[in-house]
């Protein structure tokens, strides 16, 4: 019965601080993966039209990697801010799933814990922390583990943004000599790994074609139309796939 090992907390000597360190340590590989994103975000921010302070503030107060990148892309093409906020909402909706998944484990905590833990909830921290919670659901200092992961992630993101901004500042007028290609090429590297099944391929093809067709719609609303069309296409193909299996 090796299964028994999974939920036997080996935490006889655990303290809040040791749990905090364990959370940070277990997040390390994911944090290394986030480093290039943070630096690239900072580098692109200036040429996209954000100020130095604006880019730092975005990393400090929004703290959501993919939404920040998409916001940069939208700022660069002159999108109205309410549309960017709306896009942020849609892109970050997945965090509601994380939040709902973690909720049973954090509900007993006071608000002074719940509020910062919610603010620091990212893809990376969720992946690390949910593993801990499911393995040791009753361990007393799991929230310290969460805090360790979250603070390490947050600090790293601020430092990387700053490094990127500093580098970006040394390359004034980056767009003029083609650094505007850095954003599409980064996004390509982020999209390709999604193409693992037919619904995702349909999403990407339809979103791309509609983006071209709807390009003339003002305020970059064509982008929202294209994204929604892509999502609908993915869901449709997924539905067909299910029916094929049933037949």
């Amino acid at each position: 019965m090796t299964q028994a090992n999974v939920d036997t907390p080996s935490l006889i000597n655990a303290s809040p601080f040791s749990e905090f360190l364990a959370g940070a340590r277990d997040s390390f590989p994911l944090i290394v993966g986030a480093i290039p994103f943070g630096i690239i975000f900072g580098t692109l921010a200036m040429s996209s039209g954000l100020s130095f302070a604006g880019a730092m503030a975005m990393s400090a107060f929004v703290f959501a990697g993919s939404a920040q990148f998409i916001a940069l892309g939208l700022v660069a093409v002159g999108t109205a801010w309410p549309i960017i906020v709306l896009t942020t909402f849609v892109v970050n909706l997945r965090h509601a799933l994380y939040s709902a998944t973690l909720a049973p484990y954090v509900r007993h905590l006071p608000q002074r814990w719940q509020v910062p833990l919610a603010f620091w909830l990212t893809d990376e921290t969720f992946l690390v922390v949910i593993k801990r919670y499911t393995q040791q659901p009753t361990a007393p200092y799991n929230h310290w583990y969460y805090l360790g992961s979250a603070l390490f992630m947050y600090t790293n993101w601020q430092v990387c943004t700053f490094i990127g901004l500093t580098v970006g500042q040394m390359l004034p007028n980056a767009a003029a000599w083609g650094l505007d290609f850095a954003m599409p090429v980064t996004f390509i590297g982020m999209v390709i790994p999604y193409l693992k099944n037919r619904p995702m391929v349909a999403t990407v093809i339809v979103a791309g074609v509609v983006a071209l067709l709807a390009h003339a719609i003002p305020h970059q609303l064509g982008l929202m139309v294209a994204a929604l069309a892509g999502i609908a296409a993915g869901l449709l193909v997924q539905q067909w796939g299910k029916q094929e299996i049933l037949v």
């Binding site: 979103a207 294209a226 892509g230 869901l235």
Partner: peptide, 12 residues
């Protein structure tokens, strides 16, 4: 489907 759809609509 949200992230690939939004990113593709920017890339293309």
């Amino acid at each position: 489907y949200v992230p690939p759809a939004v990113l593709t609509a920017i890339i293309v």
